[in-house]
Design a protein around this nucleic acid. Structure first.
Length: 473
DNA sequence: ATGTTC
């Protein structure tokens, strides 16, 4: 592959040529790099040429082709060096992320009512394209939600204040500017709070099947056979509308900003421009929307678990993999304030980071990696080394190996569902096509992905979880 | 990902 040199068993590099300002660094094994789409490399090279980029353009082991930036991509930019912010570097589903909760139950308790529980969750959590929830937000309520995130949701009665400590940004992203979010984006979201959406989004009940690090698992409260709930979703129609509108505006304004785009999809604006600031304000509002959404879905799931078992769900952690955030990082021995884009890349802060909850600060951040309906999910922990390698970032999931279209040609949704049922995994979904698109075979091997992430030093494995039931968009 | 083709 062009210019790709092997740096170690898990790291591949392309040194800067042409318009590249920094190298490209890809974290992958021999097997993963062999199968990686050439477009991922092209896109990473394009990112490496953007103004103000610091360090390198990174691709995680689950990287695949995305809009402009690769999914599984990380890029950090310095505002004082002409750095940019890019809608394509965040992705359309702003603040898509994963939240995992303890049920206090074991696998056997869930299996005893597996189908009934799946049905109850399926009827309680709205799911699918265009699904709507019971909540209606008026103008004032919408702006309060966009400013307050999960903290707003708790104030509205969805969950408890102690949940907030276990959410990135303590449940509320500062600097959100609802006035930079269009009426159309707000309108699309009016009835979509507390809905899961479609695609790879899900609500799963999982069992812990393996512990890799006993000490950290204990700190995270994880034991073999524990039943956990994981919720994977984002900012629904609002985030998508923000992404669509700002990408268009950034592409139009690029010449004015003196930015020459090798690919229109890389549309971006200087951080220190009116448009860049407007996007950051809108994108942060999108982050709050996703945080509030996961908080409300948690409330809906809690009601079901209370009804079935008389038990509560306790939040382990909530972390996003589609954001751009201003963070302090040490680069060549110097502290710098950088705007870190993570698109399909999970924040993975190491031990001691001030942004971690006090009771986990000594241990490191839980890094929640969602697998497919038929494979494992993983909980990793952020490391000191990972802070240096890719600004405290890791993979976000298995990563697609086949396009959605290719997957629908190869699989039938109901057959996928039957096959999973025969393996003891109960799946509920409104969309047969969605199930075909999400067939486990359409993804890379998530176990290989997280093993490579660990060997590369990005994060360390703590526990493996396997699905018992899955509510799927 | 997405009122799955403004």
């Amino acid at each position: 592959m062009k210019g790709l040199t092997k740096h170690s068993d898990t790291e591949w590099r392309i040194e800067p040529t042409g318009a590249m300002r920094v190298p490209v660094v890809i974290f992958a094994s021999e097997a993963l790099i062999r199968d990686i789409d050439d477009k991922v490399i092209e896109q990473a090279i394009n990112v490496a040429g953007l103004p103000g980029i610091v360090g390198a353009a990174y691709a995680m082991p689950d990287a695949h082709w995305g809009y402009g930036f690769p999914i599984g991509g990380v890029g950090a930019f310095d505002a004082d060096a002409g750095g940019i912010v890019s809608g394509g570097g965040v992705g359309f589903d702003i603040c898509c992320g994963v939240r995992t909760l303890h049920t206090g139950l074991d696998r056997a308790a869930v299996l005893a009512v597996q189908k009934e529980l799946a049905d109850a969750l399926y009827y309680s959590v709205p799911v699918g394209v265009g699904s709507t929830g019971a909540i209606r937000l008026d103008h004032k309520g919408m702006d309060a939600m966009l400013e307050g995130g999960a903290a707003w949701a708790v104030g509205e009665g969805y969950g408890r204040p102690e949940d907030l400590a276990r959410i990135e940004e303590q449940g509320r992203m500062a600097g959100a500017d609802p006035s930079q979010v269009s009426d159309q984006a707000k309108q699309r979201q009016q009835q979509e709070m507390g809905t899961l959406g479609s695609g790879n989004h899900y609500l799963e009940v999982q069992a812990v099947t393996e512990i890799y690090d006993a000490q950290i698992a204990a700190a995270f409260g994880l034991r073999i056979d524990d039943a956990m709930v994981s919720i994977h979703c984002g900012s629904r129609g609002l985030g998508h509308q923000i992404g669509t509108e700002y990408l268009k505006r950034m592409a139009v304004a690029a010449p004015k900003h003196g930015i020459n785009l090798p690919d229109r999809e890389l549309a971006c604006a200087p951080i220190k421009s009116q448009l860049g600031q407007a996007y950051l304000g809108a994108m942060r509002a999108g982050i709050n929307c996703a945080l509030a959404n996961r908080q409300i879905i948690t409330h809906l799931a809690r009601r079901v678990f209370d009804e079935f078992f008389g038990t509560d769900l306790e939040l382990l952690y909530d972390v996003s993999h589609n954001t751009c955030k201003l963070e302090e990082h040490v680069v060549d021995g110097r502290r710098r304030q950088l705007y870190v884009h993570r698109k399909g890349a999970t924040r993975a802060f190491g031990p001691g980071h001030p942004d971690l909850p006090p009771d986990l600060r000594r241990v490191g951040q839980p890094v929640l990696i969602g697998g497919t309906m038929g494979t494992a999910s993983y909980i990793l922990v952020g490391t000191e080394q990972g802070m240096q390698l890719a600004f405290g970032s890791a993979c976000h999931g298995a990563g697609r190996a086949l396009s959605r279209h290719a997957a629908t040609r190869r699989w039938h949704g109901r057959a996928v569902q039957d096959e999973l049922a025969s393996r003891g995994i109960v799946v509920r979904s409104p969309s047969a096509r969605g199930l075909a698109e999400e067939a486990p075979g359409a993804y890379k091997d998530v176990s290989e992905v997280v093993l490579v992430a660990e060997r590369a030093g990005l994060a360390r494995r703590v526990a493996r979880l396997e699905p018992l039931l899955c509510i799927k968009g």
